[in-house]
Design a protein around this nucleic acid. Sequence first.
DNA 1: CTGAAAGCGCTAACAA
DNA 2: TTGTTAGCGCTTTCAG
Lengths: 358, 358
Amino acid sequence: MTSEDARPDGSGRRVTLAEVAERAGVSRSAASFALNGRLDQRLSAETMARVRRAADDLGYRANVTAKTLRTGRSGTVALVSDFVSSTSFANSMVRGALERLREAGLLLFTVDTQGDAEVEQRFLDDLIARDIDGILYASMFTRRVEVPASARRVPLVLMNCEATEGPAVSSVIPDEEQAGAAAAQLLLQAGHDRGIWFVGTFPPGRTGGDAWHAWGPMALPLRLRGLRDALQDAGTDLAGEVAIDDDWDVRNGFAAAQRLLADGVVPRALVCINDAVAIGVGNALRRAGLHVPTDVSLVSFDGGLLAAASDPALVSLRLPQVEIGRRAAELLLEHGEARVERLRMPPTDGASIAPPRD
Amino acid sequence: MTSEDARPDGSGRRVTLAEVAERAGVSRSAASFALNGRLDQRLSAETMARVRRAADDLGYRANVTAKTLRTGRSGTVALVSDFVSSTSFANSMVRGALERLREAGLLLFTVDTQGDAEVEQRFLDDLIARDIDGILYASMFTRRVEVPASARRVPLVLMNCEATEGPAVSSVIPDEEQAGAAAAQLLLQAGHDRGIWFVGTFPPGRTGGDAWHAWGPMALPLRLRGLRDALQDAGTDLAGEVAIDDDWDVRNGFAAAQRLLADGVVPRALVCINDAVAIGVGNALRRAGLHVPTDVSLVSFDGGLLAAASDPALVSLRLPQVEIGRRAAELLLEHGEARVERLRMPPTDGASIAPPRD
DNA sequence: CTGAAAGCGCTAACAA
DNA sequence: TTGTTAGCGCTTTCAG
């Protein structure tokens, strides 16, 4: 038998349960029970073995479509997101989910909607029409989302976002506020108590508007709150904030740091909204003759590729994406009470923090 | 009608074609023809409209599982890879494929095998048992792969890899050799004709062995050949090669450059096997007091996030991942003759190349 | 132009 | 213990 053929006799057709039953000399139901290991049907061990052997001989594979039609369960789950599967940024969530689902023998559908509600609706309709057993609904940025009603028709867990209607729907998100506090702790422990700036707030008078600002990301306010609260608990506060008017990328981080330096500020530590901004900030510092970490300490958030590639490597509060994906899949499988879980953002081990100069 | 309900009457059950037919006062077959727009059946326009209206009124969604069982076509494709969907590196291929498949109304199953042949076999069996319409078989590194026979049972296109059995199976891969030549051209055009080193060959006497070396990546030999051929065409050659014994990452790039400099070599240009290595090399150069690009020019391959984050931004021959994904999906849909397509790797626009000093 | 009926491959209630 | 049978919801042939 070549494995390229559907069956040993070389014909293209796939082997059906009826053929297995016939070969084993039993009824189709007996064959079905035997192959599904249904002990409650009290088949004789001998019959079971005979059916199994027949199935092996014929290279039988159950037709999952037929099984799904009959049972209503497909053994599939869909990952519905804006950009998660198609961009590298939050992509590790897919890994976590994939791992856990595989352990449970489930297959994953992947769709990205590019943030288009109509596209999303069509995908959801199509997926539900395929009897998917559950939905993992993910967002690239941590934010509040309005979950389409049709997604509620099957078990649902949100990844990296929270439902506007609150904890009625399960979700797994990074603990942004804890991360903000952790950033503060790292600096405080190194001896920093002043000259600490934050890079990456919205420009004054602007809380949204175009592009992703309109999506209401939760990261900024929560990180900032955790950071300030922790600093204040230690009897200090931020020296100031530097706004970024657009994407949190390398170029804008660079520009923000240049503006700060041009104002004559000599920061001792900078907390950056993400790794890309921190890299840009680091580039600007270097060009200004300032050395990280001896002149200026740097902390950021994300803990991705860029943090590791930076010289020195960045201390960054890592988004626990794999863990989010895995845990969300877990909750989906558990089928328990709805709940919101916040996962710790641990620091990467970098070398961008040192005690202040003086 | 709340869209949360399966049907207007609020019951959980989904609306079936039979119910639509009944409401429209036609037979199930007529309803089927109308909803599938089968003009060949010459239904009266009036009937068609009536059926459509009934379907709308009831919120009818065809049960795709039943349709699949009947037709043998599921409207799904599977992306089977080692690590592509679960890591950020080659992930943009998913985007390209996803885009093209969506245009064709197909849904995508995503599975990653972590390079485990047994896991892969199980996934393939499961997918085929679900009547998938095709397979996109992808590899994270460009390499030759042994495609499991069972994958050949459905239309198949390889992404970023070539089948060991040659062009009998379609594949879309980056044109690595062209990229090597392009790297040479970029340097030659800037006036470089000597002191050009390559960073990232295998160590002497080692062509494989552990980890990914065993997977036989095609990138290195092809890039190197394109590079050397182009240099030789211009009457020059590499000044030498620097080996990297392990992953092509930032740390190893750093170490390689330090070794080179410790040997007293003063390179004028370095061609690095990928962006990460180039970043490491850049870090080492900077620490040695050498400035990119005025003292040393840098070119690399990949053209990813890191190339853009580098300061200065790297000139890098970009892996056309989105294009590979899109084109592979295209070939899968076309159903034409098997063929191997090589896609150009265009240079990113960076600032890491300048004319040599002297 | 429309309707009846077969059947895709499987599961599970029920009968023997 | 085993076998018969009725569907799951849809498409499609064929007869009207």
